[in-house]
Nucleic acid binder design. Structure first.
Lengths: 192, 192
DNA sequence: TTGCTCCTCACGTCACGTGAGGTGGC
DNA sequence: TTGCTCCTCACGTCACGTGAGGTGGC
């Protein structure tokens, strides 16, 4: 019984995978306004369905609903330009997510290797990593030094020895290139 | 004159790079509650600053403010578990962003190569790509076929010839493996 | 008559951004 | 006295999710 030529919001939702609420939302925004039947129910025609497909396609490319509306109507927006901007943003997001992944793996790796560090210690480790990946202002640098001295002052001699041991171990596992790279990265953090 | 031992919201904001509004927000959430001076102004101690650094570090790893609060206080949350979830999510985000990047490049590439396709045509292209990357339900498949036939019926003979020419050109540029892969992908779209 | 689907509010999400309008401290 | 900084509302952002309470159609 597919001889119908209009669909309700629910039917369309089931067909396309979007929720009925999303269709209401597009209606409220003026992005997709179906006609109504006598009872006030939304009635989507084939043309409405086509428009919905375009909306979903453009949405999938990261465009805002407002931008989509401008494109589909007057066309006051330049699709090529919008897509180029999306590409730039997407590339930035990929790069940022990769850095985050690297750091998460690093922290989780230590969590597995070390003898169950406490949450306390883990947070400390994360803090240090975040500091290392942030380009520091002179003020922040001074602050970091101050904090480090504070922390060091609170350690027992045994803890200090352990810290030194771990640091040496980490350095000894590095190749010459890795050591150079680590130095470069450290230097890059300092203000220009 | 760095002999002070408390800071106002503004001073702390400048030192750490967060906005004063964010500090207000953390205060309102109970995440970071500084003491107040006689005039009602927030006064952040060194301990508050340390806590802020931890907040920012954990936030940088993608944790919600609520999760951070639980960690820093009672510690009702398992940091390792949270980080593992973050890693999974991050990996999914990277994969999704890569697929989007690939598709964006594809569309933009055609935009450069072809003789300035209209916005109309570009949207059509995007639609097809989105369809191709979506696993289709039988209903959607029928719908797509119907739409395609509709579109084809509207084309002039010249446009049909042009379409055929482009399709052949695209296929001829493919290696045998690529052609096989394209067929596999097309087959994968069909319902089980 | 009973479900079922649909409808319209209207608040919630998340981490703040952005004024508006007012006050204390140097 | 004049800026400057700080304060507290309170609404806006973005794309809907999630009930609440009610009505038409088979």
């Amino acid at each position: 019984v597919t001889g119908q030529d209009t669909w309700t919001a629910g039917e369309l939702a089931r067909r396309t995978g979007v929720t009925a609420r999303a269709l209401h939302h597009y209606d409220a925004l003026g992005l997709l306004r179906p006609s109504r039947d006598a009872g006030g129910r939304r009635r989507y025609t084939a043309a409405d369905v086509r428009r919905l497909h375009r909306i979903l396609a453009l949405r999938g490319f990261g465009l805002r609903l407002g931008e989509i509306g401008q494109l589909l109507d007057g066309g006051r927006a330049d699709l090529g330009e919008l897509l180029r901007r999306q590409l730039t943003q997407t590339e930035e997001r990929i790069a940022a997510a990769r850095r985050l992944r690297r750091d998460l793996r690093e922290v989780l790796g230590r969590l597995d290797r070390d003898t169950e560090p406490s949450t306390e210690e883990l947070i400390g480790l994360i803090e240090v990593m975040v500091d290392m990946n942030t380009r520091l202002t002179p003020e922040q640098l001074a602050e970091m030094t101050r904090r480090r001295e504070e922390m060091m002052a609170e350690l027992t001699p045994e803890q200090l020895a352990e810290l030194r041991r771990r640091r040496e171990e980490a350095t000894s596992r590095m190749s010459a290139e890795e050591r150079e790279e680590a130095n470069r990265r450290r230097a890059a953090l300092l203000p220009d």
